[in-house]
Design a protein around this nucleic acid. Structure first.
Length: 577
RNA sequence: GCGCCGGUGGUGUAGCCUGGUAUCACUCUGGCCUUCCAAGCCAGCGACCCGGGUUCAAAUCCCGGCCGGCGCACCA
């Protein structure tokens, strides 16, 4: 049977040192890959482009935090609770199911927020059986997608391998805000490994248990999600697949995508604000800049039920692949203030930024002070969180709070899913006149999150070319792992010596080149083509006479003569592409 | 995690049914040759996924595991 493109590429990738399966001599483990010598170069070149776009051009800054993350952080972020599925296994046929889904189907009761024990009891109560064979079900077990580890001897502190790089940025918010001199908006990048203990990873590099993310957390004022540089991208036309159209049953599959300019999409409310739209445009530009086929990119909005627990809106950049169809390679999410609020509540540390008003003004406001003697006794450890909550209230929220407490004698506040009843005598409220110069704001976060491994695979697939007599990777010169092969036409006279000297000269100047003198020249060209080397430099008889070489271009196979003295400049110019 | 199918040098394979440690081609390495797109000649490196069982003897038969593909479930 004819191999499909995926197989051909993985084959090439394995043979030529792009991608290898990890731990292979011990049988391998699904969900892990090694980048071979060329794979590493390629991936690093992609990451360089990412840095060029976001660090250099956009002015964001990159940080690097640990991959081992203590329990508290991921408890606060919601990953400990939400990143897990309750799973139940049939004792008879061994099939496993989502316990909560099963119960809801069977008994039509709400299982939201139920503990494992409660789920067990519900299964007994309603006599829930295996939907496949009717067998008895076992105990409900938690399956968390995070890798657990323990920190320090004795394993007293639980840690997890981070499921996303984002949290490292959120928890450094105070330091970052200080670094950016308390001015919104600002963008912070983190590039590194993340971990998800997938139940059954397949599809090679598409679904990994350890993978590389490049994430941007872009902090904005919650009411100012327009973008300063929006004009620069507003005419960019993008293929969009909005949630509404996906659910519209009157539309055929291929009618669901609309091609529209970024500017128009925002005007029409298809994209909810400029900042998300801006990043959609930049993402499109990035993907095209590294060489992803522009006709195989689209942006699909998440349906309400597929959104992550922290997001209110999300657009995925999807890239088309032959075997897997459209796969998610970049997620651009509006995470609101979810993370900063959660971390603030859990840590008791205020995570807001002081935003100055254009003009100072006098307002009537309330000063809400906790009556610590009472509150402390009642809420104990939670007091800190309540304090942070109250300190974080905006003027509007304060008014609401006071109104409630005066009318009803109490306010119920919800901190991270936990409810607290605040009675009138827990707080002291003063009405004060105050000149305000600004206000505390918890920024919202717009997060473009790039899956580097998937992008790398897609790039290989989109670069793969077959011609009658050869296979080659049409990688852009700036992205290609090896930039040049230096070849003596024949192993005679001084040709090998000169070729070696040129090879060294190129390497000294920062161009990754390889020398190859084995076999006939044609064979060596083919070898270079297959791994995507954009230029072959051949030392021939004429070189000996006039110090010129031929430079063969990979895609066209055209040759030009270039003086050895001018070779570096010639190549450097070409390598900008 | 379940079911079905598969796993032999770097790649593609022959051998498996009917047990006696492996075929062929390409690639790769060294040499000769070769003045522009996988030419030729000589020499060489290189494999039965792992573990257990049956047997005098296992690539071959049986069981388990791992990996891969497909289907189901999952993919926040």
């Amino acid at each position: 049977m004819e191999k499909d493109v995926y197989e051909k590429i993985m084959d090439l990738a394995r043979r030529r040192g792009y991608l290898w399966s990890s731990f292979e001599i011990y049988g391998g483990i699904a969900g892990f890959v090694d980048y071979g010598p060329l794979g590493c170069l390629l991936k690093n070149n992609i990451i360089s482009k990412f840095r060029e776009q976001y660090i250099v051009k956009e002015g964001f800054y990159e940080i690097e935090s640990p991959t081992v993350t203590p329990y508290e952080v991921l408890k606060a972020s919601g990953h400990v609770d939400n990143f897990t599925d309750p799973i139940v296994e049939c004792k008879n046929c061994l099939e496993s199911f989502r316990a909560d889904h099963l119960i809801e189907e069977f008994a039509d009761v709400d299982t939201e927020g139920k503990t494992l024990k409660e789920l067990d009891e519900l299964i007994k109560k309603y006599n829930v059986r295996c939907p496949k064979c009717g067998g008895e079900l076992g105990e409900v077990k938690k399956f968390n997608l995070m890798f657990v580890t323990s920190i320090g001897p004795g394993g007293k502190r639980t840690g997890y391998m981070r499921p996303e790089t984002a949290q490292g940025i959120f928890i450094q918010f105070r330091r970052l805000a200080q670094f950016f001199r308390n001015k919104l908006p600002f963008g912070v990048v983190q590039i590194g490994k993340s971990y998800r203990n997938e139940i059954s990873p397949r599809q090679g590099v598409i679904r990994l248990r350890e993978f590389t993310q490049a994430e941007i957390e872009y902090f904005v004022h919650p009411e100012r999600k327009e973008h300063e540089k929006f004009d620069l991208v507003k005419d960019e036309v993008v293929p969009l697949l909005p949630a509404e159209r996906q659910m519209d049953e009157n539309l055929k599959e291929d009618e669901k995508v609309i091609k529209i300019s970024i500017g128009e999409a925002v005007e029409k409310g298809i994209i909810r604000h400029q900042t998300i739209a801006y990043f959609i445009a930049l993402t499109k530009r990035f993907l095209e800049a590294i060489g992803i086929d522009k006709d195989k990119i689209r942006f699909r909005q998440h349906l309400p039920n597929e959104m992550a627990h922290y997001a209110i809106d999300c657009w995925d950049a999807e890239i088309y692949t032959e075997r897997f169809g459209w796969i998610e390679c970049v997620g651009i999410a509006d995470r609101t203030d979810y993370d900063l609020r959660s971390h603030s509540a859990h840590s008791g540390v205020e995570l807001s930024i002081f935003v100055e008003l254009d003009e100072e003004r006098e307002i009537e406001t309330y000063e809400i002070n906790l009556n610590y003697k009472v509150v402390g006794r009642i809420f104990k450890k939670d007091t800190k969180a309540i304090e942070a909550y109250i300190n974080n209230l905006s003027e509007k929220e304060k008014e609401e709070f006071v109104k409630n407490i005066e009318n009803n004698g109490k306010v119920i506040i919800n901190i991270d899913g936990k409810e607290f009843e605040i009675l009138k005598d827990y707080v002291e409220i003063k009405k004060v006149k105050k000149v305000i110069k600004g206000e505390k704001v918890i920024p919202h976060v717009i997060e473009p999150s790039y899956g580097i491994d998937r992008i790398t695979y897609c790039l290989l697939e989109h670069s793969y070319r077959e011609e009658e007599d050869r296979v080659y990777l049409d990688l852009k010169p700036s992205i290609a792992p090896i930039k040049a092969y230096v070849l003596p036409l024949v192993n005679k006279d001084d040709m090998p010596k000169i070729a070696k000297e040129i090879n060294q000269m190129l390497r000294e100047s920062g161009i990754i080149a390889e020398y190859d003198d084995s076999g006939a020249i044609g064979r060596r060209y083919m070898r270079a083509d297959e791994i995507g080397v954009p230029f072959c430099i051949t030392v021939d008889g004429q070189t000996l006479k006039d110090k010129t070489v031929t430079v063969r271009e990979r895609n066209t196979r055209e040759q030009v003569r270039v003086k050895i003295d001018e070779l570096i400049n010639y190549l450097k110019e070409k390598l900008k592409e």
